[in-house]
Structures are given as structure tokens and as C-alpha cells.
């Protein structure tokens, strides 16, 4: 919106006369300093891009050595030394655990966002929830793993994929709440008033008018949260156990995940295990990047649609 207000960069008066009313043109040392600063800022970006490119290149190169459909679907080998075998169970585990976490965290998070934006307003309790949710965002993922282990796994006396889902859901929840609130905030008030004026109750207004309007943003934010969750290791380390065979059952039996496989194999002295770690890392990056890109695309398409309308 400011874009329309800000005038196109005011042309500096270039008069040779050098009147005292005209700003002095930056010269010499000052201009050099400014240029140097700009170069440094560009370099900062390059410094961030280099590790990204190096990492993606290296992991892709190493990962493609073993990556294949078979690698993704074959069971894990029983020995780290074994050349055969793939990461099938880990792929299955990552999928069911992440989906499980999403099914818990996203509906709850969206409802939390609805509470904060539609009901809480500026109330004290709303402020408290908002504050705690921000604190919860900062809780380290390993602490979440410890929490679910001591709170859930010790109680049910079984490591399951579901325990992992619980830990991931706790991590995702505050993120989804925050995105939902931000997105709901963007819904114009006139829409709510229009719906209410037509006699819709608040809950109906929210369900049929407000939520659909905010949906693309919420979907995009949730996708980002899912992408992050899919790559998490620490919350799963003690909660899901280990397995050699694919386990589609979230609630029974131990499970495994891509991230946990990478962690377990990264330090292995055996080359095949290291190769599997890179294959798994490549798979994981692929999943995470696709989800992140999807989220971006949703956002871009959405903002284009909205700005095109108004």
C-alpha cells in the first residue's frame, strides 16, 4: 500500500552551480563507504547461499548414488554393512507420523487461531494464550521428545508412531495457531459484518465466510509447518523406537523415520550405511523442498488473486 504513496526516487538535483540550497552530492570517501556497505550486504547473501548450494549439491550427488524406486520401497537391512536394502520402512514411518501429527495439530491450531482472532480480541486471557503460544514455539524439539517420552511412552509402555506424532503435533501447534491468527486478521471486517447482518450466527459466519477467505493462507502456513515437522529428528528419537519392517499402523508397534535413519547411519563407519543416510537425506530434502515450494506457490497465487480483486 505504501508503494503507491512513495514517489519514484526523487531525482537528485544535478546543478553544476552548487547552490547552498541544493544538497551536496556525495563524493569520494562517503560514496566509497556506501558502495562498500552495499557490497558487504550482497556478500552476506552470498554467504548464506553458499552453504545452501553446497549442501544441496553434495547431498544430491551422494544421494543419487543409491536413490531409486527400489531404494524407497525395500525394507531396511539388518546389518549396517549390508549393501542391499532400502529405506522403505522409514519412508512409511515419516509419512504416517507426519500425517498423524498434521491431523492433530492443524485442526486444533486453526481453532486456536479462530479463538485468538475472533473471540479473544484484546482480552487478558487471549493475550496470555498468544504469549504462551510464542513461548511454546521456542521450546527446543528435544525437550518435546523428552516430554512425550516421559508423559506418554512411559505411561502406555510402548513406543509407537503415535507418540512421535504427538511430539511433532506439539511442535506444530503454536506455528499453526500463529499463522491462522495472522491470516484471519487479514479477512476484511466488512465480510463478517455482511454475514452477521444477513442473520448468520457468529460460528456460521466464521465457518462459511471468514475461514474460506483465509483458507489459502492457512493452508500455506500449515504446509510450511508440516515440512518442518517431517524433517524433525529429536522429537522422534525416543518416542517411536526402531523397526526393520514397514509399519503402517500408527498406534501399534514401533516405527522408524527418515530423519532417525539418517541420524543413526551418519556416524556409521560402514560405507553402505553412509550411502543409505545420504539417500534418506536426499529423499527428506526432496519432501521438504516440495512442501515449501508448494506453500510459496499457494501464497503467491493467493496474494495475486486478492490484489487482483481489490
Amino acid at each position: 500500500m505504501t508503494a503507491t504513496v512513495v514517489p519514484p526516487a526523487p531525482p537528485t538535483p544535478r546543478s553544476p552551480s552548487g547552490s547552498i540550497l541544493r544538497p551536496r552530492k556525495a563524493t569520494g570517501w562517503r560514496r566509497f563507504k556506501s558502495g562498500l556497505a552495499s557490497v558487504l550486504f550482497v556478500l552476506a547473501f552470498v554467504a548464506a547461499a553458499i552453504p545452501l548450494i553446497a549442501l544441496v549439491y553434495y547431498v544430491t550427488r551422494e544421494g543419487l548414488k543409491v536413490f531409486s524406486w527400489e531404494f524407497l520401497t525395500t525394507e531396511l537391512p539388518f546389518s549396517q554393512r549390508s549393501v542391499d536394502g532400502g529405506i522403505g520402512p522409514a519412508v512409511v514411518g515419516t509419512i504416517v507420523i507426519t500425517v498423524g501429527a498434521t491431523l492433530m495439530a492443524v485442526p486444533l491450531g486453526v481453532l486456536g487461531g479462530i479463538y485468538l482472532n475472533e473471540y479473544a480480541g484484546k482480552s487478558k486471557f487471549g493475550a496470555l494464550v498468544r504469549f504462551l503460544s510464542e513461548i511454546l514455539t521456542g521450546v527446543p524439539s528435544i525437550v518435546m521428545g523428552l516430554f512425550i517420552y516421559t508423559f506418554w511412552v512411559l505411561r502406555v509402555k510402548e513406543q509407537t508412531g503415535f507418540a512421535g506424532s504427538l511430539a511433532l503435533a506439539c511442535l506444530m501447534l503454536p506455528v499453526v495457531i500463529r499463522t491462522s491468527e495472522e491470516m484471519l486478521k487479514l479477512v476484511p471486517h466488512e465480510l463478517r459484518e455482511g454475514s452477521l447482518a444477513l442473520g448468520s450466527r457468529k460460528s456460521r459466519t466464521i465457518r462459511t465466510v471468514v475461514l474460506p477467505h483465509a483458507a489459502p493462507g492457512i493452508v500455506s502456513g500449515s504446509l510450511l509447518a508440516v515440512a518442518r515437522a517431517a524433517g524433525e529428528t529429536a522429537p522422534l528419537l525416543f518416542t517411536i523406537g526402531a523397526t526393520q519392517t514397514a509399519n503402517w499402523n500408527l498406534f501399534e508397534g514401533t516405527n522408524t523415520a527418515l530423519s532417525v535413519q539418517i541420524f543413526g547411519n551418519a556416524n556409521s563407519p560402514y560405507i553402505p550405511a553412509q550411502e543409505r543416510a545420504f539417500g534418506a537425506a536426499f529423499t527428506l530434502i526432496l519432501i521438504v523442498f516440495v512442501a515449501t515450494a508448494l506453500a510459496r506457490i499457494v501464497t503467491v497465487v493467493y496474494t495475486r488473486r486478492v490484489s487482483g480483486k481489490s
Binding site: 486444533l108 491450531g109 481453532l111 486456536g112 479462530i114 479463538y115 485468538l116 475472533e118 473471540y119 479473544a120 486471557f125 487471549g126 496470555l128 494464550v129 504462551l132 503460544s133 513461548i135 511454546l136 521450546v139 525437550v143 518435546m144 523428552l146 516430554f147 516421559t150 508423559f151 506439539c170 501447534l173 503454536p174 495457531i177 450466527r201 457468529k202 460460528s203 456460521r204 466464521i206 465457518r207
Partner: peptide
Amino acid sequence: GYLADRTFRIVAVLAGVMVLVILALIIWVL
């Protein structure tokens, strides 16, 4: 619609309360 409205509100509040519950549980359990 009164009941639906009420229920929805309560569910939303509960979702907000979840954050509080989780954080409290983490601290207490640890």
C-alpha cells in the same frame, strides 16, 4: 443455531487453552 454457536465457541476456547495445558504439562512432567 444457539447450541451450535455455543459449542463452536467453547471448542475454539478449548483449542486456545490447549497451549496453556501443553506448556504446563511439559514443565510439570520434566
